[in-house]
């Protein structure tokens, strides 16, 4: 009996020890087998970069206000409760259907403001192939992405929520290889995967007081939908996103291109080209973003983590052949 008990005890020790050992083995295995730039895991679990607090709700009293007037809550308690409710309301995520409606409206605005569609299906097909390849290895590959070329000489690129990505013909003329294109598209895709515009919208003080942005609410009140679109338009086309979100898009855009097998220096190289171009002042890609020198510096630091000797693709020949006579 004693021996039987001892046998079980040893079995249990083996089990517990194995559990810890396997995790250690796994870490060791990862360290040995992972390619030197072991960035992927970090990229899978990005740090949330909230630089602003959710908009404070200033709306009416509701039950809390009633409680306050009836003397159930004192003023201080009432204020704390209102802030808590406001914070929770501001956290409510915008669902995909609403995201798509907002992104679709903004996509119409993009065509309207930036030269319309560049009419070349072969070029659109090429951009879509590169963009789709990068989106496939992003952190949100399960939505549909749409790509288009804008008919403007100004070097611009945009993303609107729900999967719409744009790049101007002027920007395409500046690129030297497919890795640079993948880096630019990766940056835009990262704005969509990380819902940067929606995060900014939800934190907007101008829209404070709104509990949620549902299709029902927006269909009912055309003014509300218009207000939302105007707010995001101003962010994307005029004010620009928070610079930390832009750095995050640079980081993830580079990572997505790398995952697909492109050289991770693509976006950095493009920023250098754009930073010295005569047309840089007309680029929203620069005017609404942090300075290219800052972005270039941060990307240079990031690239140190990638293995420069791996056979990453630049695909300069394919870029030239696929765009020849089309730009």
């Amino acid at each position: 009996m004693k021996k039987l008990f001892l046998t079980f005890a040893i079995f249990a020790i083996g089990l517990v020890w194995a559990q810890t050992s396997y995790s250690q083995f796994d870490k060791l295995f990862e360290a040995i087998t992972k390619p030197p730039p072991k960035k992927e895991q970090a990229a899978e679990e990005p740090q949330k970069q909230d630089t602003e607090q959710p908009a404070e709700q200033n709306g009416g009293g509701g039950l809390i206000g009633l409680g306050e007037s009836l003397g159930v809550f004192d003023k201080k308690t009432s204020k704390i409760l209102k802030q808590s409710v406001g914070t929770l309301q501001a956290f409510q995520p915008i669902e995909y259907e609403e995201e798509k409606a907002i992104g679709g409206s903004l996509a119409v605005e993009v065509f309207n403001k930036f030269g319309g569609m560049y009419p070349n299906p072969a070029l659109q097909e090429y951009i879509t192939l590169v963009g789709q390849a990068v989106a496939e290895v992003s952190d949100r590959p399960d939505i549909e992405y749409h790509f288009a070329v804008l008919n403007t000489e100004n070097p611009n690129a945009f993303a609107t929520p729900g999967g719409y990505v744009f790049v101007s013909v002027g920007l395409l003329r500046m690129l030297q290889n497919e890795a640079q294109l993948a880096g630019v598209l990766g940056h835009e895709i990262a704005h969509i995967t990380h819902k940067h515009a929606l995060q900014t919208l939800q934190r907007s003080k101008r829209l404070s007081g709104l509990s949620s942005l549902t299709m029902t609410a927006m269909n009912k009140d055309a003014g509300l939908f218009d207000k939302v679109i105007n707010e995001v338009s101003e962010v994307i086309f005029t004010r620009g996103l928070d610079k930390e979100l832009e750095f995050e898009a640079d980081q993830f855009g580079t990572e997505y291109a790398y995952r697909m097998g492109y050289h991770p220096r693509g976006l950095k190289d493009f920023l250098k080209i754009l930073g010295t171009a005569e047309s840089r002042n007309s680029s929203i890609f620069l005017s609404t973003h942090p300075g290219p020198a800052d972005r270039y510096k941060k990307l240079s630091q990031l690239l140190e983590q990638y293995n420069a000797s791996s056979p990453y693709q630049l695909l300069a020949v394919r870029y030239k052949s696929r765009t020849k006579g089309k730009l």
């Binding site: 409206s105 119409v108 309207n112 569609m117």
Partner: peptide
Amino acid sequence: ISEKRAKTKGIPEENIKAVKQME
């Protein structure tokens, strides 16, 4: 709702068509 807003704002039809083509 996106199409309705674009029409209300007087955005030319070709831009609405461009989004549909893109999709």
